[in-house]
Simulated assay, not measured.
Amino acid sequence: MKKWTTALLLGIFLLTLFLAGCGGSEPAKEQAKKVLRVGSETTYPPFEFQDEKSKEYVGFDLDLIRAVGNQMGYEIQIQSMAFDGLIPALEAGNIDALISAMTITAERAKKVTFSQPYYKSGLAIMVRQDNTDIKEFDDLTGKKIAVQIGTTGADEAAKIKDAKISTFNSAPEAFLELKAGGVDAVVNDLPVNEYYITQGGGQDAKIVGKALTSEDYGIATAKKNTELAGQIDKALAELKKNGEYEKIYVKWFGSKPQ
């Protein structure tokens, strides 16, 4: 009888462990988030850049896409790549979405689906502090201009008569070329130029003239992925409604969105 009782108790114990194991695995599966692979050109502060201390990718865009992902139930995985490689990577299926201070244009919209606009920007001219010749866009005729490859700044600079265009893979490289005296001006997004100035670049450079354009940034997804595009738009709308978007905006720009 003692042996039978011991065996019965052991059986109940083992059965309890088995059922507990089965019951515990299901919630774990439910809690596991799906991964959203997001491409970004991560040398474009304050929108996306690598923190020197933590080595994490940070910035307005990356805070925003992580908030979007959280709203959708996705874990965001940032993949750093060249700006001109972002859309091809999206088309090839190597990433699921991209966020990289990318202006919504008709040409790009032929290849990708853009979300609702999440930031309003514009192009600006930056010159060295001692430059008194360039005050507006028309003064760039025949000048040496630095731009980042694949950007709307590069597109606009290409329209300037007799301009000598130097193309760089990143905005910081263009800024360094200006500082070194290799070019007369940089044509780039206004908020990025302003961030460079406030972070110490103002000792060497200044912004001149008015914003050349008015541009909207959007999050892009593949043309065929209409479901994901809809989810991102819905998440953005909710973040603007619940105040999270404004919180992120104030963190990086010091003022509320217009």
Rank of each mutant, 00 (worst) to 15 (best):
A20Q: 13
F60S: 03
M81D: 03
Q258T: 06
K110H: 11
E173G: 14
Y196K: 07
V147Y: 03
L90Y: 10
I87P: 11
G202V: 00
E48F: 15
I232M: 08
P257Q: 08
M1C: 13
K33W: 07
G218C: 03
Y249S: 06
D216H: 15
P117L: 00
E30S: 14
D130S: 15
S255F: 10
Y57C: 04
G142Q: 12
E41Y: 15
F60Q: 04
L86I: 04
W252C: 05
A67M: 05
Q116M: 13
A163F: 01
A211V: 05
A158R: 11
A158D: 09
I78E: 00
A89C: 08
Y245H: 09
K206V: 05
D204P: 01
D139C: 05
G93Q: 03
P191V: 06
K164E: 09
L17K: 09
N70C: 14
A174V: 04
K234I: 00
A163I: 03
D133K: 10
A154I: 03
L86M: 01
I219A: 08
G254Y: 07
A180Y: 11
G23R: 11
A154L: 00
N169S: 15
N193F: 06
G209K: 06
E238W: 08
P45L: 00
T141Y: 02
G209F: 02
A106N: 15
L62G: 06
T213M: 00
I149L: 15
L98A: 12
E246H: 07
D133Q: 15
D133C: 05
A211F: 15
I95E: 01
G153P: 01
L64A: 01
Q203N: 09
G150F: 06
G200F: 03
E177G: 03
T5D: 13
A157Y: 00
K224C: 06
A171E: 03
Q203M: 12
G122M: 01
Q31H: 11
A157E: 04
E173Y: 08
Q199V: 09
R128E: 02
P45W: 00
P46W: 12
Q77M: 13
K53R: 08
M81N: 03
T198Y: 05
P27W: 07
D84W: 13
A229W: 02
L123P: 04
Q199C: 11
D133P: 05
E91I: 05
V58A: 13
N242F: 09
E215I: 12
T132G: 04
V58P: 03
A20H: 10
G93M: 04
A157N: 03
K161C: 01
V147I: 00
E41F: 11
P27A: 07
A92W: 11
D155T: 11
A82M: 14
K164T: 11
S25N: 12
S166M: 10
A163Q: 02
P117Y: 02
V58Y: 09
I165F: 01
W4Q: 15
D233N: 13
G201P: 05
L19E: 12
T151V: 08
P88L: 11
E30H: 13
Y249K: 06
K251L: 07
I65T: 09
Y196I: 09
